[in-house]
């Protein structure tokens, strides 16, 4: 119980004093996670829309595969990315291992199926409402995709935030491919793991509270900016 209380006190002290290390680690966490999220959204949202409106041979298999990949073990992803980026791997020449780029790649692989699957579910419901109308208006494929993505934007925001939540809390994969190097690849989750292994539970808890606060703040901020709860708007 003391550890929890010490953690809370230390968390507020670190935040109140704007501890430089904490700020650096937190910003690095956000940089890596938001970059992975942006890349994932660019891939996942149009992919979800295409899966919704397009009929092709392996569509059902692709949807089932993406659903299955939602539960992809991060450690396995980390291991695979490690092998691919290591010196002897096919992309070893790029020298990306133990960099933020490697961490972004791993997180992108982890969250893309998750965002695609959740987005696909929302878009599928919207498409069943819109199908006849958009067909009768003779819309092109691109127009249908744009319409669905725009009109489902609140639901897609939720899908993206689910991806953000998974990515920012992820530790296994980024530990393997990032190496938890101080001032280079250390992020909130890997720092928590390190402090726990050192027995400094108070600092680990403090970092944990900062992680939780960051996630809550970003979620609330996003909902507030997008006016999700406003009367008369979607």
């Amino acid at each position: 119980m003391n550890d929890i209380w010490d953690g809370i006190v230390q968390a507020f002290t670190l935040i109140y004093t704007l501890d430089p290390d904490l700020i650096k680690i937190s910003l690095r966490s956000l940089q890596v996670t938001l970059s992975a999220l942006a890349i994932s959204c660019i891939i996942a949202l149009p992919l979800a829309a295409i899966l919704t409106i397009q009929r092709f041979k392996f569509r059902r298999f692709t949807i089932a595969l993406l659903n299955a990949l939602m539960g992809l073990p991060p450690v396995v992803v980390g291991l695979l990315v490690y092998i691919v980026l290591s010196r002897s791997g096919p992309f070893g020449v790029l020298d990306l291992l133990y960099t933020k780029t490697a961490m972004i790649i791993a997180q992108t692989i982890i969250i893309t199926p998750l965002i695609t699957s959740i987005a696909h579910q929302s878009l599928r419901e919207l498409w069943s409402d819109y199908h006849d109308l958009l067909i009768s208006m003779n819309t092109s494929h691109n127009q249908r995709i744009k319409t669905l993505l725009w009109d489902a934007r609140r639901a897609l925001l939720t899908a993206s935030l689910a991806g953000f939540g998974r990515a920012i809390g992820e530790v296994g994969a980024i530990m393997i491919v990032g190496g938890n190097i101080d001032n280079a690849t250390r992020v909130l989750t890997t720092a928590i793991a390190l402090e726990t292994s050192k027995g400094d539970f108070a600092l680990a808890l403090a970092l944990g509270f900062v992680l939780i606060l960051t996630t809550i703040a970003l979620n609330i901020g996003t909902h507030w900016l997008s006016k999700t709860e406003n009367e008369g708007r979607w």
């Binding site: 819109y130 006849d132 109308l133 009768s136 208006m137 003779n138 127009q143 009109d151 489902a152 979607w234």
Partner: peptide
């Protein structure tokens, strides 16, 4: 011909947009 015909359904299908945006939608297309 496809651009010169429209269809109104028995159960009106409304886009999840404002009344105004529903009207501008086919024109913007």
């Amino acid at each position: 011909s496809v651009g010169k015909q429209m269809f109104v359904f028995q159960t009106p299908i409304m886009l999840r947009r404002s009344v105004f945006e529903n009207l501008t939608y086919p024109l913007r297309l």
